[in-house]
Simulated scan of single mutants.
Amino acid sequence: MTGKTSAEPPYRITSEMLNLVAEISETLGRLSAPMDQAIALRLRRINRIRSIQGSLAIEGNTLSEAQITAILNGQRVIAPPREILEVRNALAAYERFPSWRPAVEADLLDAHRVLMAGLIDEAGVYRRGGVGVMAGNEVIHLAPPAARVPELTAELLRWLAATDAHPLIAGAVFHYEFEFIHPFADGNGRMGSLWQSLILTRWNPLFADLPVESLVFEHQGEYYQALQESTEQTDSAPFIVFMLRMILAAMTGATPQVTPQVTPQVGKLLQVIQGEMSREGLQAALGRQDRKSFRERYLQPALTAGLIEMTIPDKPKSRLQQYRLTNRGRQWLLEQGFGGLT
């Protein structure tokens, strides 16, 4: 235990946590270096899109980063209306983000109202019935009775306002305890992520658009396992460690040098790749017949820059070899406005 409040959530401070906090703090120092304003704005936009996509995907939204980019740009997207509304609500929440205060109940309820407007009847109010945390079809946690939600949430917010725990620790503790209480009928996952980001942003503004949620989505099984282990141990240490690892990974991938210089030929290649494609398919899509020229001017430079990757990297000459975009390649396309509507 740490801190001095009367309603202290149960958690241990471990050497692994302290090492992760130190490493995150060191990385923050590097990310705080002066950056060209235009690059910084593009990076923030990309990371915000990734954050929204990740937080919504955890709860079943299927829209891609490209589709979210299109919605942000006011373009028409063919997708389920509910999923489009979820994205619009998330975009609206990020606009309100700077005005919310982490330990204020009215702001917490307002954030839920914005996120869930038009999606559920109980947007902005605590749930009135029982709920559970699901991992696939499995219930991994039955939340406390609805009658206790106001009291438990108020207690958690009082702890947050008074704790002397490091913000990186306090944010993860709050996130776990929030998911344990599960105060709303729906949207608890995205609210927990949003509020942890808010806690961290009040400590350092660089966290406002850090795409932690996209990493959590990629490690969704570990996320639920960490929640379950913390509940079983009555100690949120496993969840704290998991979240600190995700934060560090997101920070490592958020540095601006991931955007490389791209030749016109490689740019065209990135624009035609759909899923996984063979060399022959790529050449046909580009209208290139000379195999050697295609490899030297299109394929190899894209591979070397880490913009595309082989599906069978240990057998580069396999007749089954195909190529697909990497995260770096997708990021370049988003930066250039080649989001697409597929």
Rank of each mutant, 00 (worst) to 15 (best):
G337W: 13
Y176Q: 02
F184A: 01
R158Y: 08
I84H: 06
E151D: 09
P167W: 09
L206T: 06
F174Y: 15
L28D: 08
L91N: 05
S99Q: 13
A93P: 01
A170Q: 09
R48T: 07
G60Q: 12
R295S: 10
A237V: 11
R330W: 08
D107I: 07
L156K: 01
N73P: 01
L160G: 03
L299R: 00
S25A: 11
P316Q: 08
A22E: 14
R330K: 15
M191K: 11
A117I: 01
P167N: 03
L269H: 00
I312R: 02
P150W: 10
S318K: 07
P102Y: 13
M1N: 11
F294W: 01
R82Q: 13
G192L: 08
P211L: 11
L210E: 02
A22L: 12
F338G: 01
L282M: 10
G281C: 09
E335N: 09
V104N: 12
Q322N: 11
G132S: 11
E65D: 14
A33G: 06
P80T: 10
F217L: 06
V258S: 12
E16A: 15
A111D: 08
R295H: 07
R50K: 15
R113A: 15
V272P: 06
A154C: 04
N204K: 07
E23A: 15
L41D: 13
M310H: 08
F174Q: 00
P205K: 03
V131T: 15
S197Y: 01
Q228P: 02
Y176P: 00
V216E: 02
E65F: 02
R48G: 00
M1W: 09
T326K: 03
L152C: 09
A7S: 12
E280M: 05
E276S: 15
A106K: 14
I71A: 04
P264N: 10
R48F: 04
A135C: 07
D186W: 07
L157T: 03
L115F: 11
D107C: 06
R324H: 08
L41N: 10
S6G: 04
E65T: 14
G329P: 05
Q300V: 14
Y11Q: 05
E309D: 04
G118W: 10
M17C: 08
G253Q: 15
V272E: 00
G29P: 05
P34L: 05
I84S: 04
A284N: 12
E309P: 00
Q228C: 03
P150N: 03
L334W: 08
F217M: 10
P256A: 07
I120C: 05
V266S: 04
D110K: 07
V272T: 12
R50C: 06
E8K: 03
G329F: 00
G267A: 14
Y298R: 01
I68N: 00
I39T: 15
A135L: 02
E83N: 09
I24H: 02
T342A: 13
A7M: 08
V104E: 15
L28K: 05
I39H: 05
P167D: 03
P183H: 06
R324V: 14
D36G: 11
Q321G: 02
A70T: 05
V77D: 07
E105T: 00
N188G: 05
S51C: 10
W195F: 15
T234G: 08
I312G: 01
A302P: 11
W159F: 04
D290T: 04
A40Q: 11
A123S: 13
M243D: 01
H166R: 03
G132R: 09
Y94K: 02
E179V: 14
I46E: 10
G129R: 14
T304Q: 15
L206Q: 14
R45T: 14
